[in-house]
């Protein structure tokens, strides 16, 4: 649905030039919610603005629903943008218009006339749960309500794609959840493809089917959450399930087991203790429901060196679990392999 190929963006020129995006490529499938996560300054905003060409890439191509936007004339680009709704961190609502007026703005721009416009705007406000606030000005609305108006405005023209630029970053945790639930609802109900950028891992956990990690203008990794979890050494997986610093473990082996899908239901640790007679200590665990399935990471300490524990570790791997040996011991593991 969205295909970004080798996009770079440089601001300024000469000695003062700064490159916000380095050869970024992304694929967002139809109907999924794709999250781009990164620290501030990573280039997230530039990236999402490059999708609808609010920021024109210095190099590379952006294709949305079959249209290569980077090739379109200004007039054609305007038409293409109507298929792409966008919501903003600071809502960007017109202060002089009511909630309904703001939703109607999108319809006015695409030339929807009088009665139709009013009917459609009320319909959409109802969808986002703001039917009773149609006549309120933005100054009279809470942050969450403003973002609902922003979403309604973006949806009014029946777009196929919704871009979300840190839509929940200015909101408190509870409101963030309700807005994310709304995004999920419209994703399912309207079959909308959503590309969102965020610096909050919780957003990715809660709604995303796929994710990419952006750092210093480069994509470090991307893919479906499920596949990222089962990728050894995935930074995203580690940040999805933070276990904190590894404690000193001289002489012992610390392993991290990543569960996803069906493996999360099995009594893995109990089996380990029973079958190998090991005194397993649990150092940390993080479990989340992602895409309706349990997934998580557990950090265990096993007595003895990694070599001594080769049998139980191989057994775990044989069960389809992702097992990583932590710290200096990992070198031993590599030497053995």
């Amino acid at each position: 649905m969205i295909s970004v190929k080798h996009v770079s963006k440089t601001f300024g020129s000469g000695a003062s030039a700064t490159t916000a995006l380095h050869d970024v490529s992304l694929e967002v499938a139809r109907g999924e919610i794709f999250g781009v996560i990164g620290q501030s300054g990573a280039g997230k905003s530039t990236l999402i603005r490059a999708i609808n060409l609010l920021e024109r890439p210095s190099a590379g191509t952006v294709t949305v629903d079959g249209d290569e936007l980077t090739q379109l004339s200004p007039d054609r680009l305007r038409l293409a943008r109507r298929k792409i709704g966008m919501v903003f961190q600071h809502f960007n609502l017109l202060a002089g218009r009511t909630a309904q007026g703001n939703v109607e703005l999108g319809l006015e721009i695409i030339g929807v006339g009088g009665a139709d416009r009013r009917r459609r705007s009320l319909e959409i406000l109802d969808l986002v749960g703001l039917a009773d606030k149609a006549g309120a000005y933005p100054a009279e609305l809470s942050g969450g309500q403003k973002q609902r108006v922003g979403i309604a405005r973006a949806l009014a023209g029946n777009p196929k794609i919704l871009l979300s630029d840190e839509a929940t970053s200015a909101l408190d945790p509870e409101t963030t959840r309700s807005i994310l639930d709304l995004v999920k609802t419209i994703n399912v109900q309207l079959g909308l493809t959503v590309l969102l950028i965020t610096h909050e891992m919780d957003v990715v956990k809660r709604v995303c089917d796929s994710a990419a990690m952006l750092e210093n203008g480069r994509i470090l990794e991307q893919g479906s959450i499920v596949s990222l979890i089962s990728t050894p050494g995935s930074r995203l997986a580690h940040e999805l399930f933070p276990l904190g610093a590894v404690p000193p473990h001289a002489g012992n082996t610390v392993i991290e087991i990543t569960f996803s899908g069906g493996s999360a239901d099995r009594p893995v640790i109990a089996q380990l203790a029973r079958n190998y007679g090991l005194d397993v200590s649990i150092l940390g665990a993080a479990v989340e429901t992602i895409g309706g399935k349990q997934a998580g990471r557990t950090r265990l300490e096993l007595p003895g060196s990694p070599v001594a524990n080769a049998a139980p570790i191989n057994d775990l791997r044989g069960q389809g679990l992702l097992v990583e040996i932590v710290g200096a011991a990992a070198q031993v593991e590599e030497a053995r392999a």
Binding site: G85, L105, I109, R153, L163
Partner: peptide, 11 residues
């Protein structure tokens, strides 16, 4: 941001 929002709507 308001100009950007209008542009994103295809204005």
């Amino acid at each position: 941001g308001l100009i950007e929002a209008a542009e994103s709507l295809g204005a």
